[in-house]
Amino acid sequence: MLAVLTVFILNPFDSNAQGDKKSSEILNAMSTKYQKIKSFKALFTYITKGEKPLKGEATVKGSKFRLKMAGQEIFNDGKLMATYIKETNEVNLQDFDPAASGDLDPTKIYTAYKKGFKSAFVKEKQEAGKALEVVELTSTNKNSQVNKVQIEVNKADKSIASWKIFQKNGQEVTYKVDQFVADVNVADNFFAFNAKQYPGVEVVDLR
């Protein structure tokens, strides 16, 4: 699985990245759009092939994020990452390492294409009265678990409508953005886990 949602510290499309002209233009426009956003809240649906759709929610502010999905809630205040597991009322604490956060960091989907992928424009399609541009990213990293990613971008405003991840083991996961609110007003303490709000929680400190 790739990162779940967006990033705002974005650079123009990497000149070393591989891709045809049209896909590069689409990805650049998408990156430019999200670069201007300082914070956001997003609701999304994710579907693993063969399973029922599930709902997720993410709030991001700079390097801070709070992500709720798959029975877990992840708090990241930029320094400490806390993963709360509702079923067991347990929270795991660990130092946040941006380089090692991988799938748990919802601030990378919009820069995932910059390294380790070759992009190509696939087609334009109509869905719910909107024109969507489909771009396919094929992994160039032999060690990656991801084979390719298909991203659907709204042609009118260059926002991401959905993306589908094809893993080398045959698993497919689709993420669809249901609601996106830019520049939300959210306090920094919203991203820090507060044990007082979870009575009886078991704290596992992995630092």
Rank of each mutant, 00 (worst) to 15 (best):
K61A: 12
G62C: 11
G62A: 11
S63R: 15
S63F: 11
L67K: 06
K68F: 14
K68D: 15
M69K: 15
Q72Y: 11
I74M: 07
F75C: 06
G78P: 00
G78T: 04
K79T: 08
K79W: 00
M81E: 12
A82Q: 02
Y84H: 08
I85C: 01
I85K: 10
K86Y: 11
K86W: 03
E87I: 07
N89W: 03
N89G: 04
E90G: 07
N92A: 01
L93I: 13
L93G: 03
Q94L: 09
D95E: 09
D95R: 05
A99H: 10
A99N: 14
A99Q: 13
A99K: 12
D103Y: 04
L104T: 02
L104V: 00
L104H: 04
D105Q: 02
T107S: 07
T107E: 07
I109W: 08
I109S: 07
Y110E: 06
T111N: 10
A112E: 15
K114E: 12
K114N: 13
K115N: 13
K115H: 15
K115M: 13
K115P: 01
F117N: 01
K118I: 07
K118H: 12
K118W: 11
S119L: 09
S119Q: 08
A120Q: 12
V122F: 00
K123W: 03
E124S: 10
E124V: 00
E124P: 00
K125H: 00
Q126M: 10
G129M: 00
G129N: 09
A131I: 08
L132D: 03
L132R: 07
L132F: 05
E133H: 08
E133G: 00
V134S: 14
V135A: 11
V135M: 04
E136F: 03
E136T: 00
E136R: 03
E136Q: 10
L137K: 05
S139D: 12
S139N: 13
S139K: 10
S139T: 06
T140S: 13
N141S: 07
K142V: 08
N143T: 04
